[in-house]
């Protein structure tokens, strides 16, 4: 992926750039609003990581609004220290696609970026999802592993559907909370882990290959690859 980082904090910007490069992406960095606007408007990027408060005349939301007005649909992840509900709403209303509050875990950021880029790439609707020998029929709501049907609760079905749609991608706990349960808070105990291990028991029990894996410090991944 080719990414643009618009961030005035040098330390955070360098960390992002290095991390993204290590994950196999290339990233440009703009430290001011003006530079950010110029880069975003002149180069095609797969996604933009946008800070909100920027020096240089135009802030993050200003850039996003200007880009959207000119018809630019590049996925944008807003990365901000402003955490209020209205801040979040204003960010998404201006045309941002996702909102991540600082301080953040790099795994979280990467997972969200991945999800954003994939979402913009394949918007096609499917009726069957498959990951390895696991398949899900979205019309009849039936799930089977190696042809053997699995009995899932509605909530487990929804969870598995999300994981299958994001197969081979890291999915974080926060992403699951937001997308499956639509909660915007972290529960005191890690309830998501329990849901995942319950689901894992159903789909991976007795199978020689584990499909649902835990990615340390990030989240989970459903994959048939090694």
């Amino acid at each position: 992926m080719k990414l643009l980082i618009v961030e005035d904090n040098e330390r955070v910007a360098q960390f992002l750039k290095k991390g993204l490069q290590e994950s196999g992406h290339t990233a440009d960095h703009a430290a001011t609003g003006r530079d950010g606007m110029f880069f975003a408007a002149s180069e095609p990027y797969d996604a933009i990581i946008m800070d909100r408060m920027l020096p240089g005349g135009i802030d993050g939301l200003g850039i996003i609004e200007a880009l959207r007005k000119s018809g630019n649909k590049v996925p944008i992840l807003i990365l901000s220290a402003l955490s209020g509900v209205d801040d979040r709403i204003r960010g998404l209303k201006s045309g941002g696609d996702d909102y991540l509050v600082k301080p953040f875990a790099f795994g979280e950021l990467l997972a969200r970026l991945d999800a954003l880029v994939r979402r913009s790439q394949d918007a096609r609707s499917e009726t069957t999802l498959t990951v390895g020998d696991l398949s899900m029929d979205l019309l009849s709501h039936k799930v089977s592993r190696s042809g053997k049907p699995l009995a899932l609760q509605p909530r487990e079905f929804k969870l598995l559907e999300y994981l299958m749609r994001h197969a081979d991608q890291v999915v974080t706990r926060t992403m699951l909370l937001e997308n499956i349960w639509e909660y915007d808070f972290d529960p005191q105990t890690n309830v998501v882990d329990v849901h995942i291990s319950k689901l894992r028991q159903k789909i991976d029990a007795g199978a020689d290959r584990q499909l649902l894996r835990t990615i340390r410090n990030s989240g989970y991944m459903l994959t048939a690859n090694d």
Binding site: N9, R11, V12, F15, K18, G19, A81, S83, V101, K102, P103, F104, A105, F106
Partner: peptide, 13 residues
């Protein structure tokens, strides 16, 4: 948030 973000970044790096 900014120094906390930096601290976390350093450690993760």
């Amino acid at each position: 948030r900014t120094p906390l973000a930096e601290l976390r970044s350093r450690l993760e790096e």
